[in-house]
Write a protein that binds this DNA or RNA. Structure first.
Length: 349
DNA sequence: AACCCGTGGTA
DNA sequence: TTACCAAGGGT
């Protein structure tokens, strides 16, 4: 048995029964693939159920306001996935008469769909012989064939795609693609792979050379940027506050409290003297109190955000019309959601 | 090519 | 605790 057929044989005896494995409806496969980008199955599962339930068809998704889509996506991260998903749903309904594209070259035109996702959908739903190359495939191929080309270079991307395509079982690309990914996720894991019970252990290069921990090779290291956020949590006499929509960068189109970002941590006096602060409150009589004395950084892939939540009490409620109950309807970053849960738990539970 | 975009699990 | 990184894609 060749490499791919051994993987398929293993897969047919070891596959998990996942909800998106019981359908070839391209809309559902698309949903699952977008949700699972850079996301573990355990983390994405409930989101898949939520999306299928709230948007049973691509028409339902297209008809929803973006805020509703982002709210359902809240907590999953990489929110451009949700924005692109929604954009592409509208494209399918308005430009393609609601018919999901049925081949690789049309599928990859969808926003948020790259080579991996187009290969996955076209093979699983339409039996098109396009090999998927995700993190699992890089790892399995690099180890088994002893390839040390860095996987995050254009050379590596081409090399692994070509090899995966050569290895692909063209009779059953759907099963082959899912087999190699499942194999990478559960047998040839990043740490502590189960080499003892691996069906390929007698011919694996990395096992023979004892360099499993060095493969796959990744180039460069991402640098983490520190940012200092000062959120202005307004409390008016009428029990209202204010949130605003983010217009750029991280958490685009999600909501947060009015923000003053600084290059270094600042204290209360520096906050009050800040230009943005005086522009907002002018000569109004406000009281300021820091909610979180202990600042725990909110860690993203390449940013550490040190957020202070300043409670601003003000009599005038003219410009601050959000009730605290309303805020739970808006999509917010986890950082904001965690604060809300601590600060106004009465309203949310 | 280099950088940006989240959150949570694991060792 | 830090570091890695997960069914990647856009610019």
């Amino acid at each position: 048995m060749n490499f791919s057929n051994q993987l398929i044989y293993w897969y047919l005896n070891n596959r998990r029964d996942l909800p998106w494995r019981n359908t070839t409806n391209p809309y559902y496969i698309w949903l699952s693939e977008i949700i699972l980008q850079q996301t573990r199955v355990d983390q994405g599962m409930n989101y898949y159920f939520k999306f299928v339930e709230n948007f049973p068809t691509v028409n339902d998704l297209a008809a929803a306001p973006e805020e509703e889509v982002l709210k359902l996506w809240q907590g999953l991260g990489y929110y451009s996935r949700a924005r692109n998903l929604h954009f592409s749903a509208k494209y399918i309904v308005n430009q393609l008469n609601g018919v999901f594209p049925s081949n690789y070259s049309e599928i990859i035109k969808l926003k948020g769909v790259g080579d991996y996702t187009a290969s996955a959908i076209s093979s699983i739903c339409f039996n098109e012989p396009m090999a998927v190359v995700d993190g699992n495939v890089y790892r399995v191929l690099a180890r088994y064939f002893g390839i040390n080309t860095p996987i995050n270079t254009s050379k590596g991307i081409k090399e692994f795609k070509k090899l995966a395509q050569q290895l692909l079982n063209k009779e059953d690309p759907a099963t082959n693609n899912q087999a190699i990914m499942e194999f990478g996720a559960r047998m040839c894991k990043p740490q502590n792979p189960d080499c003892n019970s691996c069906p390929l252990n007698s011919s694996c290069s990395a096992l023979a050379k004892n360099n499993i921990k060095d493969l796959p090779v990744k180039e460069g290291k991402l640098k983490v940027r520190n940012r200092y956020f000062n959120y202005l949590v307004i409390e008016t006499d009428e029990n209202t506050t204010k949130i605003v929509k983010r217009k750029k960068g991280i958490w685009l189109n999600l909501y947060e409290f009015p923000l003053i970002e600084t290059l270094k941590p600042i204290n209360e006096n520096e906050l009050i003297e800040h230009e943005t602060f005086s522009n907002l409150f002018g000569l109004n009589n406000v009281s300021v109190k820091l909610f979180n004395n202990k600042i725990k950084p909110h860690k993203l892939s390449h940013q550490h955000i040190y957020a202070k939540f300043w409670i601003i009490k003000i009599a005038n409620s003219l410009n601050y019309k959000h009730s605290w109950e309303d805020i739970s309807k808006y999509p917010v970053p986890i950082l904001i959601n965690n604060f809300l849960n601590e600060y106004k738990s009465d309203y949310f539970f």
